[in-house]
């Protein structure tokens, strides 16, 4: 059950979508530079859901194990950003990023690091854009690569804390001629989501001004 105060209005959702879209545009542009191939990103679909539901959403779509690059952020609002893709894509992505001239052994050797670096670039693009657009600053942790199922990726870590909400951004990124796809998710607790909502309102006021309905 999502409390009323963090459910986003249509316009707030629009604003968040656009903001994420900017970040995604940058991420796409960055990924293009890294991969040197066409990268398609879907317009982000945004949903605020429980962690359980987020896990189910991802499990419904991906049957295999997942790999995620995780970055925690703190600042005006705090949370955790995840770049998620099917584990079977992992080496493909590494090969795409690190160049096809690498041998299979080399690919495996730098896999972890290449994933972390890719996640770093993409998540930073999104988070930094959000921070800039919302006129707040965020500190980002060093990216970490984690593996597991949808359920384990979204499992609440600290005991006793109530289940967080997930700002679930479906961003399908598909790389032409490679079976690579992924998702971006942001997990935030209720206070952070409430702050985000407030910042979105500020943003809308700034941008829309007198045209506010």
């Amino acid at each position: 059950m999502i409390p009323i105060d963090v459910s986003l209005s249509e316009l707030e959702r629009d604003a968040l979508t656009e903001i994420v879209n900017i970040g995604v545009s940058r991420a796409a542009s960055n990924l293009r530079k890294m991969i040197g191939d066409q990268v398609f990103l879907s317009v982000p679909a945004i949903e605020v859901v429980s962690q359980t539901r987020a896990a189910r959403l991802i499990t419904e779509r991906e049957v295999s194990d997942l790999v995620a690059v995780r970055q925690d952020f703190t600042g005006a609002f705090a949370g955790r950003a995840l770049l998620i893709f099917p584990e079977e894509n992992s080496l493909d992505l590494v090969r795409a990023v690190a160049g096809s001239e690498l041998s299979a052994d080399e690919v495996i050797e730098i896999e972890q690091e290449a994933l972390a670096e890719t996640g770093n670039v993409i998540l930073n693009s999104c988070l930094a854009t959000m921070a800039n657009m919302l006129k707040r600053s965020l500190s980002m942790s060093i990216p970490q690569v984690v593996r597991g199922t949808g359920a384990s990726l979204f499992a609440a870590e600290e005991q006793g804390t109530e289940e967080g909400l997930v700002l679930f951004l479906y961003i399908d990124f598909a790389v032409r001629s490679r079976d690579i796809r992924g998702y971006i998710a942001m997990i935030m607790d209720l206070p952070s989501l409430a702050i985000l909502k407030g910042l979105l309102e500020d943003f809308i006021t700034r941008v829309v001004g007198d045209d506010l309905p």
Binding site: I22, T129, I204, V207, D211
Partner: peptide
């Protein structure tokens, strides 16, 4: 149209901030 204006303003703001399309 006034009803569409807010959402277009947001979209344009995104463009001016670096969204591509």
């Amino acid at each position: 149209h006034p009803d569409d204006r807010p959402r277009i303003r947001i979209a344009v703001a995104a463009i001016l901030a670096g969204a591509e399309t």
